[in-house]
């Protein structure tokens, strides 16, 4: 039982290190920032999640003392990774792109970093009409 648990924990730790390195290598390998955004937010998060699961199993099975901290960290990281990616993409759009160079959004409203929010814009138009 302990031997198989050790094999499982070792595999999870190796997979975590591998995916964390893949994410960081993609950060220097991929040519464009919008492509570079994919590497850390997906691969590195998966690697850290795998390391955290390995740590949880280690303290549960080998040390015999279950700890819930890893679950909290995993949940926090998996919740915050998409928010971080969205913010970095918005910062990139705002800093490095011109509004004319962007493709149309295909919807009623323009890009969020350049256009006002829809409700405020409607209120402004109404004020302008008055």
């Amino acid at each position: 039982m302990t031997f198989f648990a050790e094999i499982l924990i070792s595999l999870l730790i190796v997979a975590g290190g591998f995916f964390a390195f893949v994410g960081s290598f993609g950060l220097i390998k991929l040519p464009e920032i919008m492509q570079r955004l994919h590497a850390p937010t997906k691969a590195t998060t998966l690697g850290v999640g795998s390391v955290l699961v390995a740590s949880m199993l280690y303290f549960l099975i080998i040390e015999g003392s279950p700890s819930i901290h890893e679950l909290v960290i995993t949940l926090f990281l998996f919740l915050t990774a998409p928010i971080t990616a969205n913010f970095v993409a918005k910062a990139h759009l705002h800093e490095d792109q011109h509004p004319e160079a962007l493709p149309p959004t295909g919807g009623e409203h323009g890009w969020a970093t350049f256009d006002a929010p829809p409700d405020q814009r409607v209120a402004g138009q109404e004020r302008g009409a008055d």
Binding site: I33, R36, P40, T45, S55, I73, V88, A89, A91, E95
Partner: peptide, 26 residues
Amino acid sequence: PSIADRILALDTMVINSIALIILYGV
């Protein structure tokens, strides 16, 4: 080249450091 690159690199460094801390705890 851009500010967004540096922010992304810092965020990835933080995530990798968390993995290092967890592995040191193990």
